[in-house]
């Protein structure tokens, strides 16, 4: 599904990723952990096509294509989805319009028949209910005046409707209370299937109690310094990152 090989990425001339290699197979859930500033957000940002990054070396293959040669929107249509750490507020565009346009763009590309307005509204309302979101949410401006938790759940709502092949979650769990965390976890678990993959960037292992990853990677100073199973996350929680990065915890 996703093959990142020796990826070097700079921002404003400063190298952030320094030779990162990662393979994610269809059906797998990977967690990326690591201290602040280690390059976690840069990794998912560069995969989703966030502007401002310079790839200086390395390759990224997604479903056999050169991902880095695709425009941001082409990646989205091919099935890459990034749940933002800080979702953007867009007053003046209703959440419903926004979701519908996004779903149309992606379905159109997959040559799926467009959904009629009532079909889409029904689907959106139903998904809201599953995510414990009030359907009045759909009428508001995109993320406008949403609480932190509502914004994160709105990301999961989009993910659920867009049904991506590769979901990238950038600290979707941070700042969430336990109820919201469970909603996010349910959304991710529901997406899990043999055809899809998930990469979750997280700071805490708390989310991993609810979404059990196949692999956990520790990112430090722009490289993956350790990979393991679920137990690696527990170990990190106990010991901090110091023992892996050479710093005192």
């Amino acid at each position: 599904m996703l093959n990142v090989s020796d990826l070097h990425v700079s921002v404003n001339g400063k190298e952030i990723l320094k030779g990162l290699t990662l393979e994610v197979k269809a059906g797998e859930v990977h967690a990326i952990m690591g201290p602040n500033g280690s390059g976690k957000s840069t990794l998912v940002g560069v995969l989703a096509g966030r502007p401002g990054y310079e790839v200086t070396a390395g390759t990224v293959q997604f479903k056999g294509q050169d991902l880095l040669s695709l425009e941001t929107e082409e990646r989205a249509r091919e099935g890459v989805f990034l749940a933002f750490q800080y979702p953007v507020e867009i007053p003046g565009v209703s959440n419903m319009e926004f979701l519908r346009a996004a779903v149309e763009a992606v379905r159109g590309h997959r040559q799926q028949a467009p959904l009629s307005a009532p079909e889409f509204m029904k689907l959106a309302r139903q998904t809201c209910t599953e995510l414990d979101l009030d359907p009045s949410f759909l009428k508001r401006g995109v993320n406008e005046g949403f609480s932190g938790g509502e914004k994160k759940r709105n990301e999961i709502l989009q993910m659920s409707l867009l049904e991506p092949a590769l979901a990238l979650l950038d600290e979707t769990d941070s700042g969430l209370d336990i109820d919201a965390l469970q909603v996010v976890a349910q959304g991710v678990n529901r997406l899990r299937s043999p055809e899809r993959a998930v990469v979750m960037v997280t700071h805490y292992q708390r989310l991993l109690n609810h979404v059990v990853p196949d692999q956990v990677h520790v990112l430090a100073e722009g490289r993956i310094v350790r990979s393991g199973g679920r137990e690696l996350a527990l170990e990190l929680e106990e010991k901090g990152y110091g023992w892996l990065t050479g710093e005192t915890a």
Binding site: A48, E71, T72, E73, F81, F84, V88, F98, H109
Partner: peptide, 13 residues
């Protein structure tokens, strides 16, 4: 950032 947000949801530039 808003532009990137929409493009990351499949909107053309």
């Amino acid at each position: 950032e808003a532009l990137f947000y929409l493009r990351s949801r499949g909107f053309s530039m």
